[in-house]
Design a protein around this nucleic acid. Structure first.
Length: 839
RNA sequence: GCCCGGGUGGCGAAAUCGGUAGACGCAAGGGACUUAAAAUCCCUUGGGAGGCGACUCCCAUGCAGGUUCGAAUCCUGCCCCGGGCACCA
C-alpha cells in the first residue's frame, strides 16, 4: 500500500492527500466511540451557513484553526469529538433562493453537498457520522420541542409590539439585527421601519443578571465577554417619582439622582401611556400631531443622534420631588419608550441631551453641580488647572457639566456633598417619602423569534378561539414545513404559510374545535442556539439529546468562532442552555467552557467582499498547493486570534519548508545518522517547548516559525542543506517534528510517519515532551551594557554571580573603552541575560 | 461621542512579569550549479556615517513628553487604522 519512496522521491501533495483521505475514511480514523471514550474532549467550531458561493477562505481559516486545536488535543491523549453541520435555514438562504428563483428546499441541499465536498478536501478531523442539518425535520422537530418547553415554562409569549420591519426582507428583525442605528443587517442601504405586530418573544430578560454574572466565570476571549457585557448594558441609578395632576405619577429612571435639584422639566416618550391623560385641552392638537409624526417615522430618524431636538409641551406640570416646584411636562422623541420607564427628568445643566433640548425650547438651566475643591474636572478651563489653589471661589464650569467628580450646589442641605455620595444620600432622603427607589436597568430586550417568512421551522402553536395559543403536543412534532411553491414573502406582514388554508386549518389539540396554526416561522438563531447539544445524540430519533451522552460530552470543551456572533448566537445559546438547565434537562448552565474568537482574513488590508472583487477562493489554492500547505499558510499569516493579510506570494515559503522536512525524512530513511549531537538536540527540545506552548495558546504562526527554525538548524548540522551526498538524519531528530506538524499538515505528517516506518496513524502517537535540561544551553551570551547601551557580548556559562559577571565585563576591551576608567557606580545584573554598568 | 483592539524594515510579522528590536517567512539584489531556464544552494538586505578590512559609531518600534541603570513594552497628552455600541437618561 505504501508508496516506495524511491519511486516517488518528491513530495506530491495531491497524491499524499488523496491517499490519506481515503485511508482515514476506510479506517474511520476521525470517528470516536462516544460511549467508550475515556477522556472526552468536545472540540466545537461554529457551523457554517452553506452559501451558494461555497466555502470562503474565511471559513477555512476558522475551521483549520479549530481543527488544529482538536488534533493537538488528540495527540495529547484526549478522545476528541469534532463534529460539523450546516446552519441552513434562514433569510440568508431564502433570499438567495428567491434571487435565483429556485425553491430553497431543492437549492439548499445542493449547496450542502458542495460545501461538504469542499470541507472534506481541507482535511479536517470531522466525524461526519454526527453531521447536523438544521433543515432536517429530525433536527427541527427538536427546535420546535425547545419552543414548546419554553412556552410551557412561561418563557415564550405572544404580544403586540413595535418591531423592526425590513421592507426589503419583508420580515421583522431582532434588535440585534438592526445595525448602524436603523439599517438592516442584510441590506445596509435599507432603512428599518417600525411596525406594530403580534410577535412571539422569548423572555431572555428574566435571565439578564445571570447572563451577566456568569460572564465573569467563563474562560472566554476578553473581547467577546466585553461585547456581551456592553450589550446587556447594566446601569445603576434610581427611579424618581414626579407627582402629576392626574392620579398616576410620572416615574423616571436616572443614573444621576444627585442632580435632582436641577431637574427643571420632565419628558415623556411620545408613546407614553400617560400622555393622553396629561395633555391640556389647548395643547391637544399639537401633541396629537407630534405623536402621529413620530409614529410614522422610521426608526432611523429617531435613532440617529446629533439631529435637532424636537418635542412639544403638554401643558401639564409635574412636581419635582426634591424642590417641590412645578416643572413642565414635555414629550419628545429623544426619549425612548423601550428603555427605563419611557420618561426622564430634564437636567439641562448636567446632561448634554437635556442641555440641547432646553436651549432649543428656552427651558430653565439650573446648575446644581460645581467643580470640587481642587478645581478638578473638565470644563473648569485651563486657567483653573494652572492655578494650584483656586481658593474659595470656584470658577464657573462650562455647561453642560457632566462630570462625576463634582460637588453639589443649589441643592439645599446637600450643598458641598460630592456627587457620588449624593446619589445615595438623595435617593435615601426621597425614598423616606416614597418618592424614590434604587434601581438597576438593562439595555437587553426580550428576544423576538417570529419571522414572517417561509424558510424556517414553523412555530409549533395552534391558535384556538376558545383555548388561545396551544402548543403542538410533542407526539405531533415536527410540524413539517410544507413544500409550497409560492414561498415569496409580501408586504402584508404575514408569512407565506398564511396563504395556505389547507395547511393552517387544523383542530385545536386541546378542545378539538377548528383552530389555526401559527404561520410564522422561528428565527435562525433558535436553530443554532442548541445545535451543539445535538451532535453527540444524532442517532436518537426519540429525544433531542441523550442524558448519558450529554453528561459525558458536554459542556463543550473548546469553542472557536468569529466575534461577529459575540452578542447574537453566543448570548442566545447561553440563554437556551440556562433554561434547559432550570427545566432539569441539562446538568450545566453554561454551554461553552472555553471560547476563543478568531481574527479575520483580509486581502490587501481590506475586508474581502464581492463588490471589492478581492475574494480569495480556497479551491484554486488547494488544487495548486495542496490542503496542507494552504492550511499552514493561513495559520502563518498572523496570530490566529487577530487574523492576517492574505497575499498569494508567501505561500511558496510554506511549501519550501515542507519540502525540507520531506528531505529530512528521506535522509532518516536512508540509514542510520548515528548519535545526535548535543547542540541539535538542544535546539530540538527548545523547539518542542516553544511549539507546545504556542499551539496550546493558539499561536500557530510562531509555532510554525519555531519548527522552521529548527529544520534550518538541523539541515545545517547534518549537511542536508548543501545536499552533501550521504547526509543522514537520526530519526530521533525528525520524528517529534512530524508529530508536531500533524495538527497543521495532517496528510503530510501521516505520509512522513509511514515513511519513517511507523504503523497506523500519526494521531495515535503521542505529543513529544521536552527535557528541560536538554533544552538549556550551557554556554550563553551575556550582554554587557554601559549606561544602558549595549557595548559588548560575552560567552559565559550559565548561572554566574553578579560579581563574576562584572569582573568578566570589565575585562573586555570594548567595555573598558566605554567605562573609560570611571568608577562603576552601580551594576544591574539579570542572570544569564545581561549586566549593566552605570558609571 | 463612548467601549475594545491595533500602529514595529520594501511586505506579512516576531520580541510585551521593562533587559541584545526586527525571530520566521515573502520580496529584492549578488553569486554557485545549468547549454539555458526553472528548481535548489550560498551571501547581502531598517536608515545614516566612518574604515582596505575584521569592524566601529550614531539614529530608529505613529507623534510629543515623562518614569527608569535600561522603554516597542509602564505613565500622561495627541494623531491615525480596524471592530463594537450609539439620544439607553
Amino acid at each position: 500500500m505504501a508508496t516506495d519512496p524511491r519511486q516517488n522521491p518528491a513530495y506530491d501533495p495531491a497524491a499524499v492527500e488523496v491517499k490519506w483521505q481515503r485511508l482515514w475514511e476506510e479506517r474511520r480514523t476521525n470517528a470516536v466511540d462516544l460511549r467508550a471514550a475515556a477522556k472526552p474532549y468536545f472540540n466545537l467550531m461554529m457551523f457554517p451557513y452553506p452559501s451558494a458561493e461555497g466555502l470562503h477562505v474565511g471559513n477555512v481559516f476558522a475551521f483549520v484553526g479549530s481543527d488544529i486545536h482538536g488534533r493537538f488535543r488528540r495527540l495529547q491523549g484526549w478522545d476528541v469529538f469534532e463534529p460539523l453541520g450546516f446552519d441552513a435555514f434562514g433569510i440568508h438562504s431564502e433570499n438567495y433562493a428567491l434571487k435565483v428563483n429556485q425553491h430553497p428546499g431543492r437549492l439548499i441541499p445542493q449547496n450542502i453537498v458542495n460545501f461538504r465536498r469542499q470541507l472534506k478536501r481541507v482535511g479536517l478531523m470531522i466525524d461526519w457520522d454526527h453531521e447536523v442539518q438544521t433543515i432536517d425535520p429530525q433536527y427541527y422537530q427538536w427546535t420546535q420541542w425547545i419552543f414548546v418547553k419554553l412556552f410551557e415554562a412561561g418563557l415564550a409569549e405572544r404580544r403586540q409590539a413595535p418591531v423592526n420591519w425590513c421592507p426589503e426582507c419583508k420580515t421583522v428583525l431582532a434588535n440585534e439585527q438592526v445595525v448602524n442605528g436603523g439599517y438592516c443587517e442584510r441590506h445596509p442601504d435599507t432603512r428599518v421601519v417600525q411596525r406594530f405586530l403580534a410577535q412571539w418573544f422569548f423572555k431572555i430578560t428574566r435571565y439578564t443578571e445571570r447572563l451577566l454574572e456568569n460572564l465573569k466565570t467563563l474562560d472566554w476571549s476578553d473581547s467577546t465577554r466585553t461585547m456581551q457585557a456592553n450589550w446587556i448594558g447594566r446601569s445603576e441609578g434610581a427611579e424618581l417619582v414626579f407627582e402629576t395632576p392626574v392620579s398616576e405619577p410620572i416615574r423616571v429612571y436616572t443614573t444621576r439622582p444627585d442632580t435632582i435639584f436641577g431637574a427643571t422639566y420632565v419628558v415623556l416618550a411620545p408613546e407614553h401611556p400617560l400622555v393622553e391623560r396629561l395633555t391640556a385641552t389647548d395643547r391637544q392638537t399639537q401633541v396629537k400631531a407630534y405623536r402621529e409624526r413620530v409614529a410614522n417615522m422610521d426608526l432611523v430618524a429617531r435613532r440617529v443622534g446629533s439631529k435637532d431636538k424636537t418635542g412639544v409641551f403638554t401643558g401639564a406640570y409635574a412636581r419635582n420631588p426634591a424642590t417641590g416646584e412645578a416643572v413642565p411636562i414635555w414629550i419628545a422623541d429623544y426619549v425612548l419608550m423601550e428603555y427605563g420607564s419611557g420618561a426622564i427628568m430634564g437636567v439641562p445643566a448636567h446632561d448634554e441631551r437635556d442641555f440641547e433640548f432646553a436651549r432649543q425650547f428656552g427651558l430653565e438651566i439650573r446648575q446644581v453641580v460645581g467643580p470640587g475643591a481642587g478645581g478638578r474636572g473638565p470644563g473648569t478651563g485651563e486657567a483653573a488647572a494652572a492655578t494650584p489653589d483656586p481658593g474659595p471661589r470656584t470658577p464657573d464650569p462650562v455647561l453642560p457639566f457632566t462630570t462625576w467628580d463634582g460637588v453639589l450646589t443649589n441643592s439645599a442641605q446637600f450643598d458641598g456633598m460630592p456627587c457620588r455620595d449624593a446619589v445615595r444620600a438623595i435617593t435615601e432622603w426621597l425614598s423616606q417619602r416614597q418618592l424614590a427607589k434604587s434601581q438597576v436597568q438593562y439595555r437587553l430586550h426580550d428576544w423576538c423569534i417570529s419571522r414572517q417568512r417561509y424558510w424556517g421551522p414553523p412555530i409549533p402553536v395552534i391558535h384556538c378561539a376558545a383555548c388561545g395559543p396551544v402548543p403542538v403536543p410533542e407526539k405531533d412534532l415536527p410540524v413539517l414545513l410544507p413544500p409550497i411553491e409560492d414561498f415569496r414573502p409580501d408586504e402584508s406582514g404575514v408569512s407565506p404559510l398564511a396563504r395556505h388554508e389547507e395547511w393552517y386549518r387544523v383542530p385545536c389539540p386541546r378542545c378539538g374545535k377548528l383552530g389555526r396554526r401559527e404561520t410564522d416561522v422561528s428565527d435562525t438563531f433558535l436553530d443554532s442556539a442548541w445545535y451543539f447539544l445535538r451532535y453527540p445524540s444524532t442517532e436518537f430519533v426519540d429525544r433531542a439529546f441523550d442524558a448519558e451522552l450529554t453528561r459525558k460530552w458536554l459542556p463543550v470543551s473548546t469553542y472557536i468562532g468569529g466575534n461577529e456572533h459575540a452578542v447574537l448566537h453566543l448570548m442566545y445559546s447561553r440563554f437556551i442552555t440556562m433554561v434547559l438547565h432550570d427545566l432539569k434537562l441539562l446538568p450545566f448552565e453554561e454551554p461553552y467552557v472555553r471560547f476563543r474568537a478568531h481574527g479575520t482574513i483580509v486581502k490587501d488590508g481590506a475586508k474581502m467582499s464581492k463588490s471589492r472583487g478581492n475574494v480569495v477562493v480556497p479551491d484554486d489554492h488547494i488544487a495548486r498547493w495542496g490542503a496542507d500547505t494552504f492550511r499552514m499558510y493561513l495559520m502563518f499569516l498572523g496570530p490566529y486570534q487577530e487574523g492576517g493579510d492574505f497575499r498569494d506570494e508567501g505561500i511558496a515559503g510554506i511549501r519550501r519548508f515542507l519540502d525540507k522536512v520531506w528531505g529530512a525524512v528521506r535522509a532518516a530513511q536512508a540509514g542510520d545518522g548515528g548519535k545526535p549531537d548535543r547542540a541539535t538536540l538542544t535546539k530540538l527540545h527548545q523547539a518542542i517547548r516553544k511549539v507546545t506552548e504556542d499551539i496550546e495558546e493558539l499561536r500557530y504562526n510562531t509555532a510554525i516559525a519555531a519548527m522552521m527554525e529548527y529544520i534550518n538548524a538541523l539541515r545545517d548540522a547534518t549537511g542536508l542543506a548543501t545536499s552533501e551526498p550521504g547526509a543522514r538524519v537520526t530519526p530521533e531528530l525528525i520524528e517529534p517534528i512530524i508529530i508536531m506538524l500533524a495538527p497543521l499538515a495532517p496528510h503530510f505528517a501521516e505520509e512522513c510517519w509511514e515513511r519513517l516506518g511507523r504503523r497506523g496513524t500519526v494521531f495515535d502517537g503521542s505529543w513529544p515532551r521536552w527535557d528541560a535540561g536538554l533544552a538549556q544551553e550551557s554556554q550563553i551570551e551575556l550582554v554587557v551594557q554601559v549606561n544602558g547601551r549595549v557595548r559588548g557580548r560575552l560567552q559565559v556559562t550559565r548561572g554566574m554571580t553578579q560579581a563574576q559577571a562584572v569582573e568578566r565585563a570589565l575585562a573586555d576591551d570594548a567595555v573598558r573603552k566605554f567605562v573609560g576608567g570611571k568608577k562603576v557606580r552601580k551594576a544591574v545584573y539579570v542572570e544569564d541575560r545581561l549586566v549593566n554598568l552605570v558609571v
